[in-house]
Computed example of a mutant assay.
Amino acid sequence: MTTLIDRNSTRAIASSRARYFYFYMALSCMAVAFLGFAPTYWLPLATGSFPSMPVIHFHGMLFFVWTIYFAFQTWLAASGQVARHRTIGMIGVSLATAMTIFGFFAAVDAMKRSAALGLTDAGIAFAVVPLTGILFFAVVVALAIANIRRPETHKRLMLLAAIAILDAAVARWFLTFLAPPGPPGPPPVPVTIAPALVACLLLVAAIIFDWRTRGRPHPAYIYGGAALVAVKLLNWPISVTPAWHSFAGGILALAQ
């Protein structure tokens, strides 16, 4: 009898950990986003030393609110409040839509600022990073919504979307602690690859958790993770192609 109780207790603890795993992962994403931008955005903003266009501030606030919303949604699901989780799901749809729109505006604003510095080509090349990033986020969130009745797929796609937009926060760590102060203007596209791969370590943790709890990684992680890494790696060769410069340059010309 004691052995049976012990086994049931162990299973209950394991089940609880599994249910709250996505909540803990969401908290990790929120911590990475906040700490990553703390030295270059939050602290300067608090001291009034971060002048910028309103679109940049709104873009930043939307993306950080997303991390809070994602953490709250995963907590609702883990605590069994599935009906409430679904009820406020439309907020997430609206928020992700606004993030996509203002992510695009922020990328265009960055190109305009680069052009004002006489670095038009560098700004156009770098624009591939935020534009493909927000496109990947939007596509994965759309797929998650399409799979809302398949919770195992839905929650993994939502986690993948959250991880996909963390490379900018991680890049701030690199700039603050590893990179010496450089000239104004966008960084070279190749330097964005390392922060993106560091952010993907959260995805590796999720894959390991899947392996331990279900014996194999979920297809959403396999195909979605492969697509995410491919996007981050391909940004570099794409950024130097005439086709990209024609496309992004056309967007810049329309915005000026």
Rank of each mutant, 00 (worst) to 15 (best):
G103S: 08
G103C: 02
F104Y: 13
F104R: 00
F105A: 12
F105M: 12
F105W: 13
A107Q: 02
A107H: 07
D109G: 03
D109N: 14
M111E: 07
R113L: 14
S114I: 02
S114V: 00
A115T: 01
L117C: 04
L117G: 04
G118P: 05
G118L: 07
L119W: 09
L119F: 08
T120C: 07
T120M: 08
A122E: 13
A122M: 07
G123N: 02
I124W: 09
I124C: 06
V128S: 14
V129M: 10
V129T: 09
V129N: 03
V129E: 06
L131R: 07
G133S: 15
L135V: 13
L135R: 01
F136A: 11
V139Q: 01
V140Q: 07
V140G: 12
V141L: 03
V141M: 11
A142V: 11
A142W: 06
L143S: 03
L143R: 09
A144W: 04
A144K: 08
A146P: 00
A146Y: 11
N147R: 14
N147C: 08
I148N: 11
E152D: 15
T153D: 11
T153F: 05
T153V: 13
T153Y: 04
H154S: 09
R156E: 10
R156S: 07
L157P: 05
M158H: 10
L159A: 12
L160A: 12
A161E: 07
A164F: 00
I165A: 04
I165S: 07
L166C: 03
D167H: 15
D167E: 10
V170I: 14
A171R: 10
A171K: 05
R172P: 15
R172M: 11
W173C: 08
F174K: 11
L175A: 14
T176D: 13
F177N: 06
L178R: 08
L178G: 01
A179Q: 13
P181F: 03
G182H: 08
G182N: 08
P183Y: 09
P184M: 03
P184E: 09
G185M: 05
G185W: 02
P186F: 10
P187D: 12
P188L: 12
P188W: 04
V189H: 01
P190T: 02
P190L: 13
V191D: 06
T192D: 09
I193F: 14
I193D: 12
A194R: 06
A196T: 00
A196L: 07
A196K: 08
A199H: 04
A199D: 04
C200L: 07
L203V: 09
L203M: 15
V204H: 10
A205C: 14
